[in-house]
C-alpha cells in the first residue's frame, strides 16, 4: 500500500462525508427547528438529481442543471411543506414517520411516471474533467476535489447564515422556543416553510453533485438518507456542528474500512476469504461505531441542551 493510494482513499472518504453533510444538515435543521423527522428527505435528493439530469440534457449545460436542482428541490420542499408537513408538526413521531414514508412512495412513483423506468446519466462538466496533481504527488480527480471544496464552502455559508443573519437568528430562536418567537411577531409558518425549503435545496444540490458519479435513478436517495440518519444520531440531532463532524466521521470511517479491512484480514487469512470477510465487516463498521458512540453518549456527540 502506497502513501498516494492511502491519501486518495482518505480524500474519497472526505468527499463522501461532505455529500452526507449536505443531506444531514437539512435533516438536522428541520428536526432542530420543527421537531420533525423527515423520511422523504431522500426523495428531495432524488428530485434534485433528476432535475439536474433533465435540464443538463435539455440545455447541454451542467451548471444550469445545478441551478435547476436547487430550484426544483426547494420548490418541491416548499410545496410539500405547505400541503402535508405543516399538519404534522404537532403530531407524534410515529405519525411523522408514516406520513413521510407515504411521501416516499408518492415521490418515487411520480418520478418513475415522469422520467420512465430507466436511469438517467449526467455528464461531468468540461471544466472539472480530468485529474489534478496534489502536493506529495497524489493524482486526484478534479471533480471529486471540487465536491469537497463546495461542501466546505456550503458548511461555512450555512454557519454564517445561522450565526450572523437575521433569518438565522430567527431559526435559532425557533429551535429554542417557538411559542416565544411567535409571540414576538415572527411569522412562524413562513419561517418553517423557509427552513424546510432550505433543507430540501441542500438535499437536491447533493443529489445533483452525486448524480455525476452514479446513475440518476428512483430510490437513489434511500441509502444516503439512512446514512444521513446515522450521521445526525452520532452528531446529536439538531446540531449543525454535530452534523458536519458526524458526516466527515462516517464518510472517512466507511471508506477507509472498505479499503483497509480486507487488507488487514489478509494478514491472517487466505486472500479470497479475507476479501469477502473484510468487505462484509466493512459494510457494518459505521453502525458498530454508531452503537459504540451511543453507548457512551446516548444523545450524540454535540446534542443541543
Amino acid at each position: 500500500m502506497t502513501f498516494a493510494l492511502f491519501a486518495e482513499q482518505l480524500l474519497n472518504g472526505l468527499q463522501f462525508g461532505v455529500t452526507l453533510f449536505l443531506m444531514a444538515a437539512g435533516l438536522t435543521l428541520i428536526f432542530g427547528v420543527m421537531g420533525l423527522i423527515n423520511l422523504a428527505h431522500g426523495s428531495l435528493y432524488m428530485v434534485g438529481a433528476f432535475a439536474c439530469a433533465a435540464v443538463a440534457a435539455w440545455t447541454g449545460s451542467f451548471w444550469l442543471g445545478l441551478v435547476a436542482s436547487l430550484a426544483a428541490a426547494a420548490g418541491a420542499g416548499a410545496l410539500v411543506e405547505l400541503l402535508v408537513i405543516r399538519r404534522l408538526y404537532d403530531r407524534d413521531h410515529l405519525d411523522q414517520v408514516l406520513a413521510t414514508f407515504a411521501l416516499i412512495l408518492i415521490f418515487s412513483e411520480a418520478m418513475r411516471w415522469l422520467f420512465g423506468p430507466f436511469p438517467l446519466y449526467l455528464d461531468m462538466p468540461a471544466l472539472l474533467q480530468g485529474a489534478i496533481i496534489l502536493p506529495g504527488g497524489i493524482e486526484y480527480p478534479l471533480y471529486r476535489l471540487a465536491i469537497i471544496v463546495i461542501g466546505i464552502a456550503v458548511a461555512i455559508g450555512l454557519h454564517l447564515l445561522i450565526a450572523r443573519t437575521r433569518i438565522g437568528m430567527r431559526i435559532r430562536a425557533g429551535s429554542s422556543d417557538r411559542e416565544m418567537i411567535a409571540a414576538l411577531g415572527v411569522d412562524i409558518g413562513k419561517l418553517y416553510t423557509i427552513v424546510f425549503a432550505l433543507g430540501a435545496a441542500l438535499a437536491g444540490f447533493a443529489g445533483a453533485l452525486v448524480g455525476v458519479n452514479q446513475s440518476v435513478q428512483v430510490g437513489m436517495g434511500e441509502p444516503v438518507l439512512i446514512l444521513a440518519f446515522v450521521v445526525i444520531v452520532i452528531g446529536g440531532i439538531g446540531s449543525l456542528r454535530g452534523a458536519l463532524i458526524g458526516a466527515l466521521l462516517v464518510g472517512v470511517i466507511d471508506t477507509m474500512g472498505r479499503f483497509l479491512l480486507p487488507q488487514a484480514f489478509m494478514l491472517v487469512m487466505e486472500p479470497s476469504a479475507a476479501a469477502t470477510t473484510g468487505a462484509s465487516l466493512a459494510s457494518m463498521l459505521i453502525y458498530v461505531v454508531m452503537a459504540l458512540i451511543l453507548a457512551f453518549r446516548p444523545r450524540g456527540l454535540f446534542a443541543p441542551a
Partner: peptide, 12 residues
C-alpha cells in the same frame, strides 16, 4: 404505489 402512498397519507 402512488395510490397506496396517497391512501396512507390520507389515513395519517
Amino acid at each position: 404505489q402512488l395510490f397506496l402512498g396517497l391512501i396512507l397519507l390520507g389515513t395519517v
